[in-house]
């Protein structure tokens, strides 16, 4: 399934809904969109992975890149993921210790931005 990217605003958060397959071929488009969001002034970004069918190391690298970019801009970055196969990927790579991962958009956007303090 092709990659789909849709952006919406929930409170002070910019939510990027991602669908389809995120792999070595499609990940550059995800990277471009995330860079656009940060360059466009978004500082609290949530990526919703609910409709992602496939996520590989390239996609994970793009997400880490966005996390670093937002930290450098004193922003926050979170993921919404409740699918066990994807959660297993985060656990195996230890990236569950790097990203704030929420079970729902509500949980991700109801937290104060200060809950995910920038490290810069």
């Amino acid at each position: 399934m092709e990659l789909s990217l849709t952006t919406r605003t929930v409170g002070e958060h910019t939510v990027l809904d991602v669908g389809g397959e995120v792999d070595v071929y499609t990940a550059p488009r995800l990277r471009e969109r995330l860079v656009e969001l940060v360059d466009g002034g978004s500082r609290h970004v949530v990526v919703d992975l609910a409709r992602v069918d496939f996520l590989d190391s390239t996609g994970l690298g793009v997400l880490v890149g966005a996390l670093k970019r937002l930290r450098a801009a004193s922003g926050t970055f979170g993921l919404v993921c409740a699918k066990e196969p994807l959660l297993k990927i985060f656990r195996i790579t230890a990236l569950d210790q790097v990203f704030p991962i929420y079970p729902s958009i509500e949980a991700a956007t109801s937290t104060s931005s200060g809950d995910n303090p920038p490290t810069a």
Partner: peptide, 17 residues
């Protein structure tokens, strides 16, 4: 090291892969 600023995207993707 995963979110370390000095880690390049290529190194990160290789390690995660």
């Amino acid at each position: 090291e995963l979110a370390d600023e000095s880690l390049t995207d290529e190194a990160l993707t290789t390690g995660v892969g």
